Amino acid sequence: MDRPSRSAGTVRPGGRTARVRAAVLEATQDALVEHGFHALSMDQIAARAGVGKTTVYRRWGTPAGLVTDLMNELANQSAPHSDTGGIEGDLRANALMVLEAINDPRLGATFQAVIAAATGDEEAARALRTFYRRRIDEWAAVVDLAVARGELPPGTDGKELIKAVSAPLYYRLVVTREPVTREAALASVDRALAAARAGAFVAETV
């Protein structure tokens, strides 16, 4: 997984519809950062974005609909996986991008707000799953390349390995509330890679 642009909807040109969407998504992200998911108000988002309430209700329907579109846009803005030529370099690049994202004041607050919302709102949970599924699928490709180069055992599950790299970082972020440091990110890579080389992520066949 990696770091998308800090502000959703700010880099895509287009006509009036695209501009309205960009303004609404930026207003949604602002509100999430400032007040969290449960304080999202469709009327306030419309006012922040400078668009009509009817437009916001018609296109997004609910606060969860706004969050879903926001997470889709953040996923769209995320860069492709790295290709350093080796699995250690690729996993380190992944971990450091996650580190940068969750320590960024705007992006980190956005993720924390949506993660918190996902514990009690199924639409928010679905948006979060979709975002991370797309990023995990993208980065799993570096594991497939490593298997082809003979760096990892055949059958290594790329998605599970990518999850194992970032999971300790998110645990620090949202569970123990510890600082998420570069040292923690690189240590997570070392542990996950050692396990992968030992065959811990080889998918079982039935």
Rank of each mutant, 00 (worst) to 15 (best):
Ala167Tyr: 01
Glu100Gly: 09
Glu178Ser: 09
Arg191Ser: 06
Asp43Val: 11
Asp43Ala: 13
Arg92Cys: 03
Glu122Phe: 01
Thr62Phe: 02
Ser166Trp: 03
Arg21Ser: 09
Gly15Ala: 11
Met1Asp: 08
Ala27Trp: 03
Gly36Thr: 11
Val142Phe: 02
Gly36Asn: 05
Thr110Phe: 00
Arg177His: 12
Phe111Cys: 12
Leu186Glu: 13
Leu91Trp: 01
Glu183Arg: 09
Asn72Lys: 12
Asp83Lys: 07
Val114Ile: 15
Ala203Ile: 05
Val202Asn: 04
Ala195Met: 11
Leu193His: 07
Asp137Cys: 05
Lys163Gly: 02
Glu204Asp: 13
Arg133Phe: 02
Glu204Val: 15
Val67Arg: 10
Ala75Phe: 03
Ala198Leu: 01
Thr176Asn: 14
Glu160Thr: 09
Arg149Ile: 06
Phe131Trp: 11
Gly61Arg: 14
Arg191Trp: 00
Val174Gln: 14
Gly61Gln: 14
Arg172Gly: 12
Gly150Phe: 04
Ile87Val: 15
Gly15Arg: 06
Glu122Asp: 14
Ala200Asp: 15
Ile102Asp: 01
Val11Gln: 12
Val20Cys: 05
Leu161Ser: 08
Asn103Trp: 04
Asp190Ile: 10
Ser5Met: 04
Glu73Asp: 15
His81Phe: 07
Thr110Ser: 09
Glu178His: 10
Val33Lys: 07
Pro105Trp: 10
Gly108Arg: 04
Glu160Pro: 01
Ala184Ile: 12
Asp121Phe: 04
Glu26Val: 04
Ser41Leu: 10
Thr156Met: 12
His81Lys: 07
Ile162Asp: 08
Thr84Cys: 08
Ala46Ile: 11
Leu152Ala: 05
Arg58His: 12
Glu122Ser: 14
Glu88Arg: 13
Arg134Thr: 12
Ala141Ser: 07
Gly199Tyr: 10
Gly86Gln: 08
Ala196Gly: 12
Asp137Leu: 07
Asn94Gln: 14
Thr176Val: 15
Ile115Glu: 13
Gly15Leu: 03
